[in-house]
């Protein structure tokens, strides 16, 4: 309750400061919109359904790419950790490409896939995949070998050991890789949506882009707020349960 209150006070103060800054009239209203106009815009797009539709389009793209990245990344991470040849090849590739800002995939995706959903999906998968591979590889290589020996004496072999011992044992690393992959995917998707107009779906990035074209600063700021909110929500829904589980079981953090 106390934490909720302090958070509320903090954000109320932030909005109040913004309001006063606007009211002082130092900057042109074209550059710094008032919190009221941003709220008004948000209310409008919420009522006519634009905001919801755009958010759904964006989230669909993000989730589809993210899930593909995870489903491919975790097994590939396992393989790079266990097979020397793959570590020297795929592992190095993953390390290199993970360092590449995922926005850099946008021009390539456009040329390969054109202005299609395929381009969006490709960019998101590239954002997710390499982080997940690397995190899983690190996780698997850090599994206490004693766990595997103990599991072997208890009749666990092969795939059973991978799924029920190595996978949960490397969970702390995999979850942080999932978070990083999510952050990269989110950033790259926004970049793609801002740069690329796709007729099959109008996402939040497009809304932001048209706000700039129309010089509608309240739209730009409102959509930025939405993007931040979705990021926070994803953290709470997707990762908080995992992190709570890790903290409870491993006794790490607080």
């Amino acid at each position: 309750m106390k934490r909720l209150l302090s958070a509320f006070l903090f954000f109320a103060l932030l909005v109040a400061a913004w309001h006063w800054a606007f009211a002082a009239g130092i900057w042109s209203p074209v550059l710094v919109p008032s919190p009221e106009s941003v709220a008004r815009y948000l209310w409008e797009v919420l009522r006519d359904g634009t905001l919801w539709d755009c958010s759904v389009v964006t989230m669909k793209r993000l989730l589809a790419g993210y899930v593909i990245g995870l489903l491919a990344g975790v097994p590939l991470g396992f393989l790079t950790a266990r097979v020397q040849v793959l570590r020297d090849t795929l592992g190095v590739l993953a390390l290199g490409l993970q360092g590449l800002p995922s926005v850099c995939w946008v021009p390539l995706a456009l040329l390969w896939f054109g202005q299609t959903e395929g381009a969006m999906l490709f960019v998101v998968v590239m954002g997710t995949l390499w982080s997940v591979i690397l995190a899983t590889e690190t996780g698997v290589r850090n599994v206490n070998p004693l766990y595997v020996r103990a599991a072997n004496t208890m009749g666990s072999r092969g795939l059973h050991t991978w799924v029920f011992v190595m996978l949960p044992a490397s969970l702390p690393f995999i979850v942080s890789g999932m978070k990083q992959g999510w952050a990269f995917a989110w950033r790259s998707l926004m970049a793609a949506e801002i740069y690329v107009t796709i007729l099959t779906g109008f996402g939040l990035g497009h809304l932001l882009h048209y706000g700039r074209e129309l010089n509608a600063m309240e739209q730009v700021v409102a959509i930025m707020l939405m993007i931040v909110l979705i990021g926070l929500l994803a953290d709470k829904v997707l990762f908080s349960p995992w992190e709570k589980f890790l903290h409870r079981r491993w006794g790490t953090g607080k």
Binding site: R149, A150, M154
Partner: peptide
């Protein structure tokens, strides 16, 4: 032939009961 190690080698992702049940799983 079951083995006990110097470190307990218990699995942190399971609770005490889950750990004992693991040896019965297979």
């Amino acid at each position: 032939r079951m083995m006990m190690f110097q470190e307990s080698a218990l699995f942190p992702w399971l609770d005490a009961l889950g750990n004992v049940m693991f040896s019965l799983k297979r």
